[in-house]
Design a protein around this nucleic acid. Structure first.
Lengths: 346, 346
DNA sequence: AAGGTTTGCTCAAACGTTACAGCATGTCCG
DNA sequence: CGGACATGCTGTAACGTTTGAGCAAACCTT
């Protein structure tokens, strides 16, 4: 077997082919000024020896790494604990693979080193561009990163950064539609929204969509501030039991909170969905397996990630920013399950 | 602001400090033969200019990339769809971060390119070593990879590859314990195991542990072969309803199958856990949120991933293989929930 | 004050790749 | 048959970093 000791370089091939290193390089790139014969010899040798071009050498010479980074601004387990990230990863990988880009996953060891970790990967030339998973709306590091002019695409809605390229979900419309579902299809008239942490745009938008729909339909709409955590959902559920005896619809900002709120409300003696409709948001997996299953808004995170990656690659290819939708917003769609009172899906 | 156009290199610092590039490099590494004065000047300039050493340059010179790859042999969404992977990612990231290693996530675009994708990252010098997430026990690519002598750590039990370094779970003992739980603590006497795909070691081990416990305790133990999927669990559940009227305990190879089997059994008119105890394996999240919640074996995947990464780094540091436990096996532990008949946790 | 040692730096080379200029040939045309 | 041109390659340089050898100058030591 032609397995070589140590990595095979162009020089090894060149020696065996009686050619210069340059000729071998050119042959492998199908350069027209290399004879068909030489090209064939080189390609054969490369295959036999298992030649793989050295990443560092190529990157150094070409000043491009052919790699992207997926940056997770929050600390490690905060995000990895969540299915959201897997959808992001899946989408990014898809497109990156397609275009033969490597993918680096970069988290922050701790909150302090945040801004350092951000830029190191880029300034070091380790990657050509980055995708940043949802960050707080006013994260100063994000603004800095965008201002640095490095190729960045943000996941989430970042309209207030005009120079940024971002891909988000139309949370306002989605929340509006979900709220209308409760009011129109289920005749609910006294609603409570359990919001996410309001430093995140998604939380703001979902709340605003909820309030807008309540106003439009003229029903009561109260907001309890949560933080997307199970504990917050439970606390809000408890609150609803004790403080909102008339509530007949609960719209949680995500499915985790919907589940824990639903449980607490049930424990408080109110039947779900008979007495109270409970709905969530995200549809990352959880909502499908609970009993009752949770009606939710499916957030198309895979597609977001794919679009974000495509946009990033476009930018790297030098396409002007004018060519792409710099603040893309995708639609979520309603998934009817049991917790609102809809009949169970087949 | 001292933000430079284009990346800052050693040469930029050298010019401003009136030193040679080498001197700057040495100063940044605290080389003793550089005067305190020069060192101070260089460090100050480096900070001001925002110098970050170029990855490619350094990698090329040092012949090490300071990066690891997490290789996913299966195709993209197959694995990313599963919480297992997030635990792996979390553990690997933890340790890699600690040691200032970058992490590349590498999936296979498709099954064909499998073996190529495996080695490319390594032969190209993109990474110094790889961690491979669980692969089928007889995957020829795995054997090839191990034989190539490149630094590799496998997740899962790979005892049949003596040269490999792997970190797995003691599935046999865990399955044995789980089965005994059904027999001893719940007095179940007619058990059915829904296995995973038997080309995976974990599936084999869990089945064998089950059978061993049944034999040891003298109870009936039947096996239905599944594949860790929800559909397989449902099919097995149906089978149990129609073909195993006396079954009073069901041990599914993972939590997905436990859930769908549990639902099918309930639909068949047998109450869980009153008539039938149903238990699962993995505890990746699902089992906690179902109703009833599923008693399961917690697989310590985070710790596995951490240990695997530490072992890989040890190998890269040149520690001999003798220094590490080449076939580590971690213990799973029983998590009592409702589906077996244990009282619900506080 | 001549010898040796230490201090503090510079120079050159190398890692693997690619691009461009250059240079032999061979080919064709008028 | 001499000049233009195409063909097929080689040589050199560069990307940014690190390292070892080398070399002045200053500093001791007797």
């Amino acid at each position: 077997m032609p397995v070589q000791s140590g990595p095979v370089t162009l020089r090894h091939i060149a020696e065996r082919a009686n050619l210069s290193v340059s000729a071998v390089s050119m042959a492998l790139q199908q350069h027209p000024r290399i004879s068909a014969d030489a090209r064939a010899r080189v390609q054969k040798l490369a295959r036999e020896l298992g030649y793989v071009p050295n990443t560092a050498g190529r990157a150094l010479r070409s000043q491009r790494s052919n790699a992207l980074a997926l940056i997770v601004p929050n600390t490690n387990r905060h995000v990895f604990g969540h299915a959201y990230f897997m959808h992001v990863l899946s989408g990014v990988t898809d497109v990156a693979n397609e275009h033969e880009y490597q993918l680096l996953v970069s988290t922050n060891p701790d909150e302090q080193h945040g801004k350092v970790a951000y830029e190191r990967v880029m300034r070091a030339g380790t990657v050509d561009g980055v995708i940043v998973t949802s960050a707080p709306v006013d994260d100063p590091n994000i603004a800095r990163l965008v201002d640095s002019g490095l190729p960045v695409v943000l996941l989430g809605r970042f309209d207030h950064l005009p120079l940024a390229v971002s891909v988000g979900v139309d949370d306002i419309a989605a929340a509006f539609a979900m709220t209308e579902h409760l009011i129109v299809e289920h005749g609910r008239t006294s609603l409570v929204h359990i919001s996410g942490p309001l430093e995140h745009q998604s939380a703001i938008d979902r709340r605003d969509g909820f309030l807008a729909a309540c106003a439009a339909r003229g029903v009561r709409g109260d907001v309890l501030e949560g933080d997307y955590s199970e504990a917050a959902g439970a606390a809000a559920g408890q609150m609803i039991v004790t403080e909102f005896p008339d509530a007949d619809g609960v719209f949680a900002g995500n499915d985790e909170m919907a589940l824990s709120a639903m449980r607490r409300v049930s424990q408080g003696g109110r039947r779900v969905p008979d007495d109270v409709s409970v709905v969530g948001f995200d549809d990352f997996g959880l909502s499908r397996v609970t009993t009752p299953s949770i009606t939710t808004m499916h957030a198309p995170v895979d597609e977001m990630a794919r679009l974000a990656t495509r946009n990033l690659l476009d930018i790297l290819r030098g396409n002007t920013i004018a060519d792409i939708d710099t603040h893309a917003v995708l639609a979520a769609h309603l998934v009817r399950r049991e917790s609102c009172g809809c009949p169970p899906p087949a």
